[in-house]
Design a protein around this nucleic acid. Structure first.
Lengths: 190, 190
DNA sequence: ACGGGTGACGAGACTCGGTGTCATCACCGT
DNA sequence: ACGGTGATGACACCGAGTCTCGTCACCCGT
């Protein structure tokens, strides 16, 4: 018999998501999350650096994926093509069956400035890894940063469209579309 | 004889900056700032929504300036030209005599993730106001957002160069240069 | 089989950011 | 003279996050 039930981190994560849905983000305390998971408050902070981070679980893994996809793009791919491949790769996190959960999560984030800040930090990290990966392909500055920023903007636009209940397109289609729009807009900028 | 010394907000601001320089950001408490300013802790939070905000004092005023400059740009100015005018207008905050103070401030921010988050939130607000002002000029999406994002990237690059001790150019010159680089990079993207 | 190290956890004290309430009192208009 | 106003002080309170210390199943070498 193990001394403790396994999967403490996972239990904390699901307990937090449940409580956020039941009581809202503000009303749920870190101690409350731990209690629901059958753990102590100190254990919560052993697994998550802070309460906000629960909602951004798995983000680092996505970053690693982005870097790999950009690095592994065909040698003759343009920077924007490599970025496009990376954006489509993010689609693994946005399958149709996850739509409801992703939407609830985003509603919480949008309603809390401290979570919006954290989201921006994560996005910046993502953009930074894409830019670094592009430089690793030999793309010079400021082209690498620009392409990464364009990718970030495209991803954001695709994401909000995907979250729009009126839209029915798959995520990959939306990223391609958004990046295409931005590419032609950039060409027309002057 | 007034019941209290005037300029409470200003005194709190300078007290905070002093203490940050003397003890570092973490080691100075909100109560300590208030004490140095001859005020109570509760008064500190009456003037600043939180401790981080002390380091971003005056940001909203800059946003208003940006919106005005973009709106007042010549009718035949391209989106990027309007953005360029806005970037140069920010130069009022970055005169040569403020270099040292701005540098110290940025060192504090760079060393604290919670302050980097706040900085990103402010930058997003700035980018958003530029995009809104561009739409007010009749610039359609996604061109408006793209031009604003390009401006944000240019401003960031100009800012870090301005902060580089090896550089001697004035801020306005650096913004023009950075925006030019990005414009040609965008044209070459594909 | 035995014994010491390891590592995940509980318990609880502690600091500090931030909120809220209530009383005070110079100032201002009537 | 008098009541309202508004900025402040004093203080209680909550929750996030840190830190320390003790516990004990598990593992690994002997």
């Amino acid at each position: 018999m193990p001394r403790w039930e396994p999967n403490a981190l996972e239990r904390l994560h699901t307990a937090a998501i449940e409580l956020f849905a039941e009581q809202g983000y503000d009303a749920t305390t870190a101690a409350g999350i731990a209690e629901r998971a059958g753990l102590a408050k100190s254990t919560f902070f052993r697994h998550f650096p802070d309460k906000r981070e629960v909602l951004f679980f798995g983000q680092e893994a996505l970053n690693g994926l982005l870097a790999a996809v950009v690095a592994d793009a065909p040698a003759d791919a343009t920077p924007l093509e490599a970025v496009g491949a990376a954006l489509e790769a993010t689609g693994v996190a946005f399958g149709p069956q996850r739509w409801e959960a992703v939407r609830r999560r985003q509603e919480i984030i949008d309603a809390h400035p401290e979570l919006r800040e954290r989201e921006l930090l994560k996005r910046e990290a993502m953009t930074g890894t894409m830019a670094t990966a592009l430089r690793g392909r030999g793309v010079p500055e400021p082209v690498a940063s620009l392409a990464a920023q364009l990718g970030d903007l495209a991803l954001a636009r695709a994401y909000t469209r995907w979250l729009d209940p009126a839209s029915t397109s798959a995520f990959g289609e939306l990223t391609r579309q958004a990046l295409d729009e931005l590419r032609s807009a950039a060409a027309a900028l002057g």
